[in-house]
Amino acid sequence: MSDITVNPGEGNAASLPLSPAQDLSEVGDWLALLKPRVMSLVVFTGLVGLLLAPGRLHPVLALTAILCIAVGAGAAGAINMWYDRDIDAVMRRTARRPIPAGRIQPGAALGFGISLAIGSVIVMGLATNAVAAAALAFSIAFYVFVYTIWLKRRTPQNIVIGGAAGAFPPVIGWAAVTGDVTLEPLVLFAIIFFWTPPHFWSLSLWAHADYARAGVPMLPVVAGARETRRQILLYTILLAPLGLAPWALGLAGPAYAVVAAALGLGFLWHAIAVWRERQDEAGRSLAGDAAAKRAFRFSLLHLSLLFAALPADRLLFG
Protein backbone atom coordinates (compact mmCIF):
# COMPACT_ATOMS: atom_id res chain seq x y z
CA MET A 1 0.00 0.00 0.00
CA SER A 2 1.35 3.45 -0.87
CA ASP A 3 2.56 5.70 1.91
CA ILE A 4 1.57 8.80 -0.04
CA THR A 5 -1.57 10.43 1.32
CA VAL A 6 -3.57 13.39 0.15
CA ASN A 7 -5.58 15.69 2.36
CA PRO A 8 -9.25 15.42 1.39
CA GLY A 9 -9.64 19.16 1.00
CA GLU A 10 -6.42 19.76 -0.89
CA GLY A 11 -6.89 17.51 -3.94
CA ASN A 12 -4.22 16.00 -6.18
CA ALA A 13 -2.52 18.23 -8.73
CA ALA A 14 -2.45 15.36 -11.24
CA SER A 15 -6.22 15.00 -11.05
CA LEU A 16 -7.07 18.69 -11.34
CA PRO A 17 -9.03 19.56 -14.48
CA LEU A 18 -7.13 21.27 -17.27
CA SER A 19 -7.60 25.00 -17.68
CA PRO A 20 -9.22 26.24 -20.91
CA ALA A 21 -5.79 27.37 -22.14
CA GLN A 22 -4.34 23.89 -21.48
CA ASP A 23 -7.32 22.30 -23.23
CA LEU A 24 -6.77 24.45 -26.31
CA SER A 25 -3.05 23.75 -26.23
CA GLU A 26 -3.67 20.00 -26.22
CA VAL A 27 -6.18 20.28 -29.06
CA GLY A 28 -3.62 22.34 -30.95
CA ASP A 29 -1.03 19.59 -30.52
CA TRP A 30 -3.35 16.96 -31.97
CA LEU A 31 -4.17 19.25 -34.87
CA ALA A 32 -0.46 19.89 -35.42
CA LEU A 33 -0.02 16.15 -35.99
CA LEU A 34 -2.19 16.52 -39.08
CA LYS A 35 0.26 19.01 -40.68
CA PRO A 36 -2.48 21.60 -41.34
CA ARG A 37 -0.37 23.79 -43.65
CA VAL A 38 0.30 20.84 -45.94
CA MET A 39 -3.31 19.74 -45.59
CA SER A 40 -4.62 23.12 -46.78
CA LEU A 41 -2.87 22.76 -50.15
CA VAL A 42 -4.00 19.13 -50.43
CA VAL A 43 -7.62 20.10 -49.75
CA PHE A 44 -7.47 22.94 -52.26
CA THR A 45 -6.09 20.85 -55.13
CA GLY A 46 -8.56 18.08 -54.31
CA LEU A 47 -11.40 20.61 -54.45
CA VAL A 48 -10.22 21.84 -57.86
CA GLY A 49 -10.23 18.27 -59.19
CA LEU A 50 -13.78 17.84 -57.90
CA LEU A 51 -14.99 21.13 -59.40
CA LEU A 52 -13.48 20.44 -62.83
CA ALA A 53 -14.85 16.90 -63.13
CA PRO A 54 -17.77 16.39 -65.53
CA GLY A 55 -21.00 15.49 -63.78
CA ARG A 56 -22.53 16.57 -60.52
CA LEU A 57 -22.12 15.48 -56.91
CA HIS A 58 -24.62 16.48 -54.22
CA PRO A 59 -23.13 19.35 -52.16
CA VAL A 60 -23.26 17.31 -48.95
CA LEU A 61 -21.45 14.40 -50.60
CA ALA A 62 -18.95 16.80 -52.20
CA LEU A 63 -18.21 18.32 -48.80
CA THR A 64 -17.83 14.84 -47.35
CA ALA A 65 -15.39 13.88 -50.11
CA ILE A 66 -13.24 16.96 -49.44
CA LEU A 67 -13.35 16.27 -45.71
CA CYS A 68 -12.18 12.70 -46.38
CA ILE A 69 -9.26 13.99 -48.46
CA ALA A 70 -8.33 16.37 -45.63
CA VAL A 71 -8.58 13.69 -42.94
CA GLY A 72 -6.68 11.17 -45.06
CA ALA A 73 -3.87 13.67 -45.65
CA GLY A 74 -3.80 14.49 -41.95
CA ALA A 75 -3.68 10.81 -41.06
CA ALA A 76 -0.66 10.30 -43.31
CA GLY A 77 0.98 13.33 -41.68
CA ALA A 78 0.38 11.95 -38.18
CA ILE A 79 1.88 8.56 -39.06
CA ASN A 80 4.81 10.36 -40.70
CA MET A 81 5.42 12.31 -37.48
CA TRP A 82 5.27 9.09 -35.47
CA TYR A 83 7.85 7.38 -37.67
CA ASP A 84 10.12 10.43 -37.99
CA ARG A 85 10.07 11.38 -34.30
CA ASP A 86 13.78 10.52 -33.93
CA ILE A 87 14.99 12.78 -36.73
CA ASP A 88 12.44 15.48 -35.89
CA ALA A 89 14.04 15.71 -32.45
CA VAL A 90 17.43 16.75 -33.88
CA MET A 91 16.19 19.19 -36.53
CA ARG A 92 15.67 22.75 -35.34
CA ARG A 93 12.59 23.43 -37.44
CA THR A 94 10.82 20.25 -36.22
CA ALA A 95 12.12 19.77 -32.66
CA ARG A 96 9.05 21.44 -31.13
CA ARG A 97 6.59 19.15 -32.84
CA PRO A 98 4.26 17.43 -30.36
CA ILE A 99 5.95 13.99 -30.31
CA PRO A 100 9.66 14.95 -30.01
CA ALA A 101 8.69 17.67 -27.52
CA GLY A 102 6.98 15.02 -25.37
CA ARG A 103 3.50 16.50 -25.48
CA ILE A 104 1.96 13.50 -27.27
CA GLN A 105 3.04 9.89 -26.81
CA PRO A 106 4.22 8.08 -29.98
CA GLY A 107 1.76 5.20 -29.61
CA ALA A 108 -1.17 7.57 -29.23
CA ALA A 109 -0.10 9.47 -32.36
CA LEU A 110 0.18 6.24 -34.36
CA GLY A 111 -3.24 5.05 -33.24
CA PHE A 112 -4.69 8.46 -34.06
CA GLY A 113 -3.23 8.38 -37.57
CA ILE A 114 -4.29 4.81 -38.34
CA SER A 115 -7.84 5.44 -37.08
CA LEU A 116 -8.21 8.55 -39.21
CA ALA A 117 -6.76 6.82 -42.27
CA ILE A 118 -9.15 3.86 -42.07
CA GLY A 119 -12.12 6.09 -41.27
CA SER A 120 -11.47 8.49 -44.15
CA VAL A 121 -11.24 5.68 -46.70
CA ILE A 122 -14.40 3.96 -45.46
CA VAL A 123 -16.43 7.17 -45.45
CA MET A 124 -15.13 8.12 -48.90
CA GLY A 125 -16.27 4.75 -50.26
CA LEU A 126 -19.70 5.06 -48.67
CA ALA A 127 -20.23 8.69 -49.70
CA THR A 128 -18.89 8.54 -53.26
CA ASN A 129 -17.50 5.41 -54.92
CA ALA A 130 -14.89 2.67 -54.69
CA VAL A 131 -12.50 4.31 -57.18
CA ALA A 132 -12.20 7.49 -55.08
CA ALA A 133 -11.80 5.43 -51.90
CA ALA A 134 -9.10 3.27 -53.51
CA ALA A 135 -7.23 6.35 -54.76
CA LEU A 136 -7.37 7.88 -51.27
CA ALA A 137 -6.14 4.64 -49.67
CA PHE A 138 -3.33 4.35 -52.20
CA SER A 139 -2.20 7.95 -51.62
CA ILE A 140 -2.05 7.43 -47.84
CA ALA A 141 -0.19 4.14 -48.21
CA PHE A 142 2.22 5.67 -50.73
CA TYR A 143 3.09 8.55 -48.40
CA VAL A 144 3.55 6.29 -45.37
CA PHE A 145 5.24 3.22 -46.82
CA VAL A 146 6.95 4.45 -50.00
CA TYR A 147 8.00 7.97 -49.03
CA THR A 148 8.26 7.99 -45.21
CA ILE A 149 9.50 4.47 -44.48
CA TRP A 150 11.32 3.49 -47.67
CA LEU A 151 12.62 6.54 -49.57
CA LYS A 152 13.10 9.44 -47.17
CA ARG A 153 16.12 8.04 -45.33
CA ARG A 154 17.64 6.12 -48.25
CA THR A 155 17.87 8.23 -51.38
CA PRO A 156 18.11 11.86 -52.51
CA GLN A 157 15.29 11.00 -54.92
CA ASN A 158 12.93 10.81 -51.93
CA ILE A 159 11.18 14.04 -52.91
CA VAL A 160 10.97 13.14 -56.61
CA ILE A 161 9.29 9.75 -56.18
CA GLY A 162 7.63 10.45 -52.86
CA GLY A 163 6.16 13.65 -54.24
CA ALA A 164 3.58 11.53 -56.05
CA ALA A 165 1.71 11.18 -52.76
CA GLY A 166 0.97 14.90 -52.69
CA ALA A 167 -0.13 14.87 -56.33
CA PHE A 168 -3.09 12.52 -55.81
CA PRO A 169 -5.75 14.92 -54.40
CA PRO A 170 -7.06 16.28 -57.74
CA VAL A 171 -7.28 12.70 -59.00
CA ILE A 172 -9.26 11.72 -55.90
CA GLY A 173 -11.57 14.74 -56.24
CA TRP A 174 -12.18 13.96 -59.91
CA ALA A 175 -12.88 10.28 -59.17
CA ALA A 176 -15.31 11.19 -56.40
CA VAL A 177 -17.55 12.78 -59.06
CA THR A 178 -16.98 10.53 -62.06
CA GLY A 179 -16.03 7.16 -60.60
CA ASP A 180 -13.08 6.89 -62.97
CA VAL A 181 -9.66 8.36 -63.73
CA THR A 182 -9.03 9.88 -67.16
CA LEU A 183 -6.25 11.89 -68.79
CA GLU A 184 -7.39 15.27 -67.40
CA PRO A 185 -6.84 14.53 -63.68
CA LEU A 186 -3.56 12.79 -64.54
CA VAL A 187 -2.36 16.07 -66.08
CA LEU A 188 -3.18 17.84 -62.81
CA PHE A 189 -1.29 15.05 -61.03
CA ALA A 190 1.72 15.64 -63.32
CA ILE A 191 1.77 19.38 -62.62
CA ILE A 192 2.01 18.81 -58.85
CA PHE A 193 4.49 15.96 -59.36
CA PHE A 194 6.94 18.15 -61.31
CA TRP A 195 6.30 21.15 -59.04
CA THR A 196 7.30 19.26 -55.89
CA PRO A 197 11.10 18.84 -56.46
CA PRO A 198 11.93 22.52 -57.15
CA HIS A 199 9.61 23.52 -54.31
CA PHE A 200 11.23 21.25 -51.69
CA TRP A 201 14.78 21.57 -52.99
CA SER A 202 14.51 25.36 -52.67
CA LEU A 203 13.65 24.77 -49.02
CA SER A 204 16.39 22.20 -48.54
CA LEU A 205 19.07 24.57 -49.88
CA TRP A 206 18.69 26.83 -46.85
CA ALA A 207 17.74 24.04 -44.43
CA HIS A 208 20.48 21.62 -45.51
CA ALA A 209 22.24 21.77 -42.12
CA ASP A 210 19.11 20.42 -40.43
CA TYR A 211 18.89 17.52 -42.88
CA ALA A 212 22.61 16.77 -42.54
CA ARG A 213 22.33 16.73 -38.75
CA ALA A 214 19.42 14.29 -38.97
CA GLY A 215 21.10 12.08 -41.57
CA VAL A 216 18.37 12.63 -44.17
CA PRO A 217 19.90 12.30 -47.69
CA MET A 218 18.30 15.35 -49.23
CA LEU A 219 19.88 16.38 -52.52
CA PRO A 220 21.99 19.30 -51.14
CA VAL A 221 23.43 16.98 -48.47
CA VAL A 222 24.32 14.16 -50.86
CA ALA A 223 25.02 15.87 -54.20
CA GLY A 224 25.86 19.37 -53.02
CA ALA A 225 24.30 22.77 -53.46
CA ARG A 226 25.48 23.30 -57.04
CA GLU A 227 23.79 20.11 -58.32
CA THR A 228 20.65 20.99 -56.37
CA ARG A 229 20.51 24.37 -58.09
CA ARG A 230 20.87 22.67 -61.47
CA GLN A 231 18.07 20.21 -60.69
CA ILE A 232 15.77 23.02 -59.54
CA LEU A 233 16.31 24.75 -62.88
CA LEU A 234 15.80 21.56 -64.93
CA TYR A 235 12.55 20.61 -63.21
CA THR A 236 11.23 24.16 -63.52
CA ILE A 237 11.99 24.14 -67.25
CA LEU A 238 9.82 21.00 -67.52
CA LEU A 239 7.11 22.43 -65.27
CA ALA A 240 6.62 25.75 -67.07
CA PRO A 241 5.11 24.34 -70.31
CA LEU A 242 3.31 21.57 -68.43
CA GLY A 243 1.18 24.22 -66.75
CA LEU A 244 -0.36 24.91 -70.18
CA ALA A 245 -1.49 21.29 -70.64
CA PRO A 246 -5.00 21.81 -69.15
CA TRP A 247 -5.61 24.51 -71.78
CA ALA A 248 -4.24 22.28 -74.56
CA LEU A 249 -6.62 19.49 -73.49
CA GLY A 250 -9.62 21.82 -73.41
CA LEU A 251 -9.95 21.61 -69.62
CA ALA A 252 -9.48 25.39 -69.39
CA GLY A 253 -9.70 28.38 -71.69
CA PRO A 254 -7.31 31.08 -72.91
CA ALA A 255 -7.61 33.13 -69.70
CA TYR A 256 -6.14 30.23 -67.77
CA ALA A 257 -3.43 29.84 -70.42
CA VAL A 258 -2.33 33.46 -69.89
CA VAL A 259 -2.16 32.97 -66.11
CA ALA A 260 -0.33 29.64 -66.46
CA ALA A 261 2.22 31.12 -68.87
CA ALA A 262 2.90 34.08 -66.58
CA LEU A 263 3.27 31.85 -63.51
CA GLY A 264 5.51 29.42 -65.38
CA LEU A 265 7.79 32.22 -66.52
CA GLY A 266 7.80 33.66 -63.01
CA PHE A 267 8.88 30.36 -61.49
CA LEU A 268 11.51 29.95 -64.19
CA TRP A 269 12.86 33.43 -63.42
CA HIS A 270 13.21 32.47 -59.75
CA ALA A 271 14.89 29.16 -60.66
CA ILE A 272 17.41 31.01 -62.82
CA ALA A 273 18.04 33.40 -59.92
CA VAL A 274 18.75 30.39 -57.66
CA TRP A 275 21.14 29.00 -60.27
CA ARG A 276 22.96 32.32 -60.69
CA GLU A 277 23.10 33.34 -57.02
CA ARG A 278 26.59 34.24 -55.76
CA GLN A 279 28.18 30.99 -54.56
CA ASP A 280 31.43 29.62 -53.22
CA GLU A 281 33.30 26.82 -55.00
CA ALA A 282 30.96 24.19 -53.55
CA GLY A 283 27.88 26.03 -54.79
CA ARG A 284 26.88 27.29 -51.32
CA SER A 285 25.20 30.68 -51.32
CA LEU A 286 27.18 33.79 -50.37
CA ALA A 287 23.92 35.71 -49.97
CA GLY A 288 22.20 33.68 -47.26
CA ASP A 289 20.23 31.63 -49.80
CA ALA A 290 18.01 34.65 -50.42
CA ALA A 291 17.16 33.49 -53.95
CA ALA A 292 16.21 30.00 -52.73
CA LYS A 293 13.95 31.48 -50.05
CA ARG A 294 12.23 33.68 -52.63
CA ALA A 295 11.84 30.69 -54.97
CA PHE A 296 10.31 28.63 -52.17
CA ARG A 297 7.77 31.33 -51.36
CA PHE A 298 6.95 31.86 -55.04
CA SER A 299 6.47 28.12 -55.55
CA LEU A 300 3.60 28.16 -53.04
CA LEU A 301 2.04 31.14 -54.82
CA HIS A 302 2.60 29.46 -58.19
CA LEU A 303 0.69 26.28 -57.41
CA SER A 304 -2.09 28.07 -55.53
CA LEU A 305 -2.77 30.59 -58.30
CA LEU A 306 -2.39 28.00 -61.06
CA PHE A 307 -5.03 25.74 -59.56
CA ALA A 308 -7.26 28.66 -58.58
CA ALA A 309 -7.20 29.83 -62.21
CA LEU A 310 -8.73 26.54 -63.43
CA PRO A 311 -12.20 26.84 -61.80
CA ALA A 312 -12.08 30.64 -62.09
CA ASP A 313 -11.61 30.38 -65.86
CA ARG A 314 -14.55 28.00 -66.14
CA LEU A 315 -16.75 30.12 -63.87
CA LEU A 316 -16.03 33.37 -65.72
CA PHE A 317 -15.81 32.17 -69.30
CA GLY A 318 -17.53 28.78 -69.37
Rank of each mutant, 00 (worst) to 15 (best):
G113R: 01
P54Q: 09
G113F: 02
L136Y: 09
R92A: 14
L151G: 13
L47H: 02
V48H: 04
I79V: 15
V131I: 12
T45W: 01
C68A: 10
I118F: 08
M124I: 00
F145K: 07
F142G: 09
V48T: 07
L61D: 09
L33E: 04
T128M: 01
W82E: 12
R92W: 12
P106A: 07
P54E: 14
G28F: 06
G119K: 06
T94A: 14
I99P: 08
R103Q: 09
P156K: 03
L31W: 12
W30D: 06
I114G: 02
L151F: 09
T94F: 15
D84A: 13
G125M: 04
I140T: 07
V60Y: 03
V146Y: 04
P100D: 12
F138K: 07
F142W: 10
I149H: 05
R153F: 07
I66W: 01
A132H: 05
P100I: 12
I161W: 14
L33Q: 05
G102M: 09
F112H: 04
V146P: 05
M39T: 14
R93D: 14
G107P: 07
F112L: 08
L50D: 04
L151R: 09
I104Q: 03
V42L: 15
G46Q: 07
S139F: 03
L31N: 01
A127T: 00
L52D: 10
I87Y: 12
V123C: 00
A127Y: 01
V42I: 13
P170H: 00
V131Y: 04
G166Q: 09
G72E: 03
A78S: 12
M81N: 13
I79S: 04
R37L: 11
W30L: 11
I69C: 05
A73T: 11
W30G: 03
Y143D: 02
L63K: 00
I69M: 14
A89N: 10
Q157T: 01
R56W: 14
A127S: 04
A101P: 15
L116N: 05
A132N: 10
T128L: 03
A89S: 15
G74A: 05
T128R: 00
M81Y: 12
V38R: 06
P59Q: 09
L31G: 06
A101H: 11
A133V: 06
R154C: 00
Y147Q: 10
A130V: 06
D29C: 08
P98T: 13
S120I: 02
Q157A: 12
I104E: 03
G102W: 13
A164H: 10
V27I: 14
W150Q: 05
R97F: 11
A62P: 06
R92G: 14
Y143R: 03
A95M: 14
M91H: 11
G162L: 00
T94E: 15
A130K: 07
I149C: 04
D84Y: 12
A137P: 11
L63S: 13
L110Y: 15
D88L: 13
A164E: 08
P100Y: 10
A133H: 03
